[in-house]
């Protein structure tokens, strides 16, 4: 790999008032990584994404994205917000919502933008619902709409916040399969409190609960999980290659 790391955090701390959200976090992502960050609610996962996106400024430490500041890197980073927090009554069609992705810095213009929107629609299997208002979508479809919107600008890094409830796999592939496919082309980071789901799909796992535990591997040690969740969790370190946790987390 040449060039700077995709994301590099050095001793980054952030607090909301007196409540620490992140404590001296070191974290480095290389091109092509597919990382799942797990941790309890209020463990700093969304805060971490917002720092990488430049929506928040760290209290101390430094953050670089593609060797630049987060603000300079805007336009190269795709972002998929928590879809559950979305105002689904907003009067906008799927196609227009996705086209929004092209309006940013470095996004495609004119005919290239139209083409990028069509590509994103078909890749996310949304062509049939392109003219629907977003409130008339299922959870999975809305999730895929938000991913498509992020992809329109052709990002090199994709950040996803809690894409958990998108498991309606009745038609087509699940969001996770689409993400696995995407991860072969670009760097993908997803954040979730759901260990079971995340661990089956990502390449490597980090644990975050104010402190970050990351060893560039998919192995979750009991110490990592215990540190992150503050309680022991049963782990199975062998068996199915994509299975990290026991029945416990899989239902």
């Amino acid at each position: 790999m040449t060039g700077p790391p995709v994301v590099s955090l050095e001793r980054v701390s952030f607090a909301y008032g007196h409540t620490p959200a992140l404590h001296e976090v070191d974290f480095e992502l290389q091109a092509g990584d597919f990382v799942g960050i797990i941790g309890p609610n209020a463990g700093g996962k969304t805060t971490l994404l917002k720092l990488i996106l430049g929506l928040l400024k760290p209290d101390s430490g430094s953050i670089q994205v593609f060797g630049m500041t987060p603000l300079e890197a805007r336009g190269r980073v795709g972002y998929v917000p928590q879809y559950a927090r979305f105002d689904r009554s907003f009067p906008i069609k799927v196609r227009s919502a996705i086209a929004m992705g092209a309006l940013g810095r470095g996004g495609p213009k004119g005919a290239a933008a139209v083409e990028a929107v069509e590509r994103a629609l078909s890749r996310m299997e949304l062509t049939d619902v392109a003219e629907r208002q977003i409130g008339a979508l299922s959870g999975g479809q809305l999730q895929r709409t938000l991913i498509a919107r992020a992809l329109v600008a052709g990002p090199s890094l994709l950040l996803l916040d809690e894409p958990t409830a998108s498991l309606d796999t009745r038609i087509g592939r699940s969001v996770y399969e689409l993400l696995e496919e995407l991860a072969e082309e670009i760097t993908v980071v997803l954040v979730s409190h759901d260990i079971g789901v995340i661990s089956r799909h990502v390449q490597t796992i980090a644990c975050l609960n104010v402190d970050m535990h990351y060893h560039h591997s998919k192995e979750l040690t009991p110490e990592m999980v215990e540190a992150a969740y503050g309680c022991p969790v049963d782990l199975v370190a062998h068996g199915h290659p994509h299975r990290v946790l026991g029945e416990h987390g899989q239902q």
Partner: peptide
Amino acid sequence: FRRLEAVAFDEEFATVIGM
């Protein structure tokens, strides 16, 4: 139109993509 619509729809995302 597109820009005003985008900011009204999702201000955070609009910020993140550099609008």
